[in-house]
Nucleic acid binder design. Sequence first.
DNA 1: CCTTGACCTTCCAGTTACTGGAAACATTAC
DNA 2: GTAATGTTTCCAGTAACTGGAAGGTCAAGG
Lengths: 129, 129
Amino acid sequence: MYTIGDTAKATDLPTKTVRYYADIGLVMPSGRSDSGYRLYSGREINKLIFIRRARSFGFSVQECRELLSLYEDQERSSRDVKAIALRRIAEIEKKLLELQSLHKELSYLAETCNGDNRPDCPIISGMSG
Amino acid sequence: MYTIGDTAKATDLPTKTVRYYADIGLVMPSGRSDSGYRLYSGREINKLIFIRRARSFGFSVQECRELLSLYEDQERSSRDVKAIALRRIAEIEKKLLELQSLHKELSYLAETCNGDNRPDCPIISGMSG
DNA sequence: CCTTGACCTTCCAGTTACTGGAAACATTAC
DNA sequence: GTAATGTTTCCAGTAACTGGAAGGTCAAGG
């Protein structure tokens, strides 16, 4: 069992955010210490890491809730699970392409503009591809 | 020259957001029509597409401002440009790894939970890798 | 020319997802 | 035992939109 600070370290989330997620019922601590400290188990740690990743790619908290429920809602049919997962996978693949494109653009910029004098770097005109 | 609606379509951003970016001085329209309509050129379209991408990967508006300034601030030395670009590239590479990991997790879920009966899918316990 | 509908304008209020800070209690380190 | 650090709740503030009202503009059809 981890206190909120240890949980924050383990998940690479701010303490404030972990507490916020508990407040909105996204990831509840598995219990409280005698003195009222939130206590998290490995399971919650894993959920929080998953959420941090999903959030950092623009999935809303609501969408994270839905993604988590894929694993937890015993009432939901496998068909639903698969449908939602596949929809998200398509989005992720689109994001992967865009992220690679962004990477390429910045790499080109770093390569091109590497002297002491400022070169022209007219890269914006090519930034939309 | 594009009106704000055409610009929104071309950049895949909501009209509201394009107007908001003008309000905060992130991307100004290159001019106004006689009747006061915002008018955008290809250059602004490209900037907006670049920003949409960067935003969707968690770069703040302030960071987008900095990234755009890499191309525009004639006072900034090439050394700075390269340093900032390299820092961002490192972040993007980390994001790429995490996005690939997210993709793998959801693909595994979609594959595993594909019958008509709900299988156990105890994937959360492996979600932190 | 007139009207209808889709566009645009400004302004202001509301939302999402945090984020910072105060006051007070708990735990750990010396 | 006391100082530093960590935790609690609560409340206010911020970033980046987002929705809606009230009104001006523009192209198409009658």
